[in-house]
Design a protein around this nucleic acid. Structure first.
Lengths: 212, 212
DNA sequence: CTTGATTTGGTAATGGTTATCATTTATTTT
DNA sequence: AAAATAAATGATAACCATTACCAAATCAAG
């Protein structure tokens, strides 16, 4: 049950404290290995984990695949760009001290982490879109439905029960062959489904597409 | 070069927007699969990636192994106990709005995450420590050096050049055999090194241990 | 209808992290 | 001091979320 302070553990902690950086496990491994060449990477992971569990060091799970560890538990805060994953430090001045030692009853607070997510200036610039297309607000373009196609969907929505393509052609006054090919297309896109062979019904996706 | 709005892409985006949660790729995969059973997990990943790149959705790389995605980021804050890992929600009232839309020049802030670390009441109680041990402030215990052992290290520190165990015994007036066994121990702990057979020198670690 | 670009599904590869286990090291008991 | 018990280590295999790859499917345009 007791946790022992081994030499490996001690060096790992020392080196992490020495370098005032957010280090990854294997950066640290590289450094520690200079002083203790036979140490195992697993040991580094194990100990970082242990030290983090007890709150001696902080585990910063900021963007990127690798975890980063920091000996300074009450550290600066971070802003990270949700698009390019750059992480910058940020120092809030006034606010700094209003996370007192009793945020929730009885908890002794030993550290905190504040992380902002946003778009950095560079990515904001990058985002100023391409053309006058229907950009769906996301850079994707989309072939919109023609008014006639919408009419077919509308007719389908007006039916209480599943109906056949011919009825839709009649209801809208459009060419039956064309209507039927659209239906096939709609089915592929998930706008309609076919509860029974040759009978069609509009889906939720179909309803929204119709309005779009 | 153009980006197409495929039915897969559309469903993925729709479902993500529908559920106001931070979803992982495979949670979303599970949901999307109900509407489109043959969709591939790779497609979900690809599209989440694409949508995130263009800034439509946010990629939140919060704690945990999996990435989480969301279009809308407003969440409660957390306190977590560093010992038992319980996580509770916490709502700060006054402070809530002073993370304005320009925390760092030019960044458009779309979300934030605030996490407190501490000891929950239960763990505090559990902690009323074991013995009169030296708890190094981190739950680790460590056998401290005896005064006599410190004296040996001190003597070693006072030497300018590497010296042999016998000299240290003489300098401290302690039993030579005991001193020599300590030296072996010190070497293992990294407090001394041996630049030459049977000659010893104090290390930086040794100096700090001596003072501790 | 052919051409060329994009996207998809299926699956293998990647890579950071964990789990496993035999061995070593430390602590407690006898 | 020796034996028994407990913790930690090194080495390496397993894990698993994510990516990369590629042949086949889909789509936009000439």
């Amino acid at each position: 049950m007791p946790v022992r302070m081994t030499s490996q553990r001690e060096i790992i902690l020392q080196e992490l404290q020495k370098s005032r950086q957010h280090m990854t496990a294997d950066e640290l491994y590289g450094i520690v290995r200079k002083k203790m060449p036979r140490i195992s990477l697993a040991t580094v992971y194990r100990n970082l984990e242990l030290l983090a569990e007890t709150g001696v060091i902080a585990r910063l799970e900021v963007s990127g695949r690798q975890k980063r560890f920091d000996s300074d538990v009450v550290d600066h805060d971070h802003v990270s760009c949700v698009q390019c994953h750059k992480v910058e430090n940020v120092l809030l001045e006034g606010e700094k001290e209003d996370c007192p030692s009793h945020v929730v009853d009885g908890y002794i607070i030993i550290g905190r982490r504040l992380e902002f997510f946003g778009l950095c200036p560079r990515c904001q610039k990058k985002n100023r879109v391409m053309k006058g297309e229907e950009t769906m607000g996301c850079g994707c373009t989309k072939k919109m439905l023609s008014d006639e196609q919408k009419k077919v969907l509308q007719a389908l929505a007006d039916c209480d029960d599943p109906c056949v393509a011919k009825d839709l052609a009649a209801a809208t006054g459009l060419d039956a062959k064309m209507v039927s090919s659209w239906i096939t297309d709609f089915k592929k896109k998930g706008y309609v489904d076919s509860p029974e062979r040759c009978k069609y019904d509009i889906t939720a996706a179909g309803r929204t597409a119709m309005k779009g």
